[in-house]
Design a protein around this nucleic acid. Sequence first.
DNA 1: CAAAAGTTGACTGAAACAGTGGGGTATCAG
DNA 2: CTGATACCCCACTGTTTCAGTCAACTTTTG
Lengths: 165, 165
Amino acid sequence: MRLTTKGRYAVTALLDLAIHADQGPVNLADISRRQGISLSYLEQLFAKLRRSELVCSIRGPGGGYRLGRKPQSIRIAQIIDAVNESVDATKCQGKGNCQQGETCLTHHLWQDLSEQIHDFLGSISLSDLIARSEIKRIAQQQDKRHEMLTPPELDGARIAATFLQ
Amino acid sequence: MRLTTKGRYAVTALLDLAIHADQGPVNLADISRRQGISLSYLEQLFAKLRRSELVCSIRGPGGGYRLGRKPQSIRIAQIIDAVNESVDATKCQGKGNCQQGETCLTHHLWQDLSEQIHDFLGSISLSDLIARSEIKRIAQQQDKRHEMLTPPELDGARIAATFLQ
DNA sequence: CAAAAGTTGACTGAAACAGTGGGGTATCAG
DNA sequence: CTGATACCCCACTGTTTCAGTCAACTTTTG
């Protein structure tokens, strides 16, 4: 059983994507800035998410990623599965041949735990997360901070206008 | 969050210890044989279990390990903690400073999950496991197999006796 | 066409796991 | 006292995975 930064990044990125879905395709550079995840690493994760059809890509300028399904039908467990992090806690992937073909002493314990975790993460969808108030608040703060970090000074016309005042 | 062979080994070994507790101190060589865990690796794990006072050791011939407390009061979560495997799923160990001092988007999700897992493993004690019928059955089989694997032929007198028949 | 965006693959340093090996030290039986 | 038994401790190693970097693509749109 493994649950590390990798799976957390994947869920965070997909949640960010879902929150900003109304503004058209979301590109990875924006997610990278807002969530503080390395761009190249995001690319790797989204390659896997695309293979699992959790997202679809739009290439070219103005392109980016879009959710592959409705946020109600994307479960957290599926996201974690997609980036190759198993939610299984048994040694034998549930086969029961943990100790030289026999079932090991604690097999049933880990099996029960796996079920517990899977039920929990499988019962939560992206839209459930979006609906949570704390998440709305955090996302708004991130958007604001992001606006400040992408200053309008990059817009040539604006620089000129300020300059010519 | 990490739950690997290490934590599973620790729980398995301690369960084996608890099951054979009535026959006096249990030595690691026996646990190693019964559970198929490398002896040297067991020594490392038991060093940690001893530091957490989950077991106490008796040195010298006839020595071995004994449970440090009653099996009812040893929770699975404590065993996993003792071998340094965290049951915490958040990036920030629950502190909430996951993203440059701010709470990350998915912090609450991982916090809830951690709580779920911790409640589950914290609600189960060693004595709960011993009581389970499947575990009793598996332990009996392991004992039988072990008897066959440690043949009395190693006893010099017996070899001689057989030889002289 | 040129720039923006996704796509792919190779590569890397660090960490952790799982395990090995070897030298101890305490304790008890004979 | 001695030797066997068992714990105790430390250094080391091979493998895997994580997290991230870099570079060279291709596709698409303005």
